[in-house]
Write a protein that binds this DNA or RNA. Structure first.
Lengths: 139, 139
DNA sequence: TTAGGCACTTACCAAAAGGTGCATACTTGT
DNA sequence: ACAAGTATGCACCTTTTGGTAAGTGCCTAA
């Protein structure tokens, strides 16, 4: 890692820290991902595209991304509500910076998968009360 | 974002998702950051370098990173305990993938800083007791 | 008329993440 | 003898995060 991670910044330990705080949130990277793929996307589409996300969560994350200047919300003040979301230039640059992480995850998928299988095994084994969750529906 | 974010992977929505789950944790990116800077680092050094981290947290994150094969723990079985941590090749490749995020954070520091100041202002504004009771006995 | 889609909002809760502080076993410095 | 440092473990508690379910106002299709 080079010195692009300049320490002692205003509120962050380094640029990496700052970035990670911006994209912190279960669905934000995914939202960025979807928006980076196609152009402006309507709320409902996004909602259906990202399975397992609730309205509350999606709206919340979109609001933050919007407030943070990463996505732009367009509200066509129409009769049945119509709103769409798109990346701002800032959002697009961030999406670009995420590409290497996508790549890393994809290239090292085997290891990562193994690692997570391991984690689950370890967690399950150390539970004294050992309660068997029937179907912990994707998280 | 290109198609390095191949959807429909084993347990993840995309490579990005996988990566982010690996580095999830308040101190992990920072640990990676420090280890990427210099070579093997002793526990105590790391501890002092990252101010505001507790033993519990640092140990916990180091354990996970070790279990995940990103860092290597070396225990010289000595009289006063001596242990050091270093990045594995996998850890180093991940650190490399993090560089663009460091860069993005640094380059867009002004915007990011503004954004966070904004967030705090927004949060702080709803704090005064002038509002309705938000149930003080939170769980 | 009733059902349903749209883009949200709200109240309430459970789980996870993180933090504090004390304990360990052993050694060195004072 | 006693404090301090070494790398960690453990119990307990608070904060943050995420999830569920319901409701809002408006409009259209059946």
């Amino acid at each position: 890692m080079s010195d692009t991670c300049t320490p002692t910044l205003p509120g962050f330990t380094c640029g990496l820290d700052a970035t990670l705080r911006v994209i912190a949130g279960k669905w934000k990277p995914l939202i960025l991902y979807f928006l980076a793929q196609g152009g402006p996307t309507r709320y409902g589409e996004l909602r259906r595209a990202m399975r397992d996300v609730s309205d509350k969560m999606l709206i919340q994350q979109l609001k933050e991304l919007t407030a943070d200047g990463l996505v732009q919300r367009t509200d066509y003040k129409e009769v049945p509500p119509r709103v769409d979301y798109a990346l701002t230039p800032l959002g697009e640059s961030l999406a670009q910076a995420l590409v290497p992480l996508c790549t890393w995850g994809t290239e090292n998928l085997a290891e990562v998968t193994r690692v997570f299988a391991q984690r689950e095994r370890t967690n399950g084994a150390s539970q004294p009360g050992a309660k068997a969750e029937p179907s912990p529906s994707a998280q």
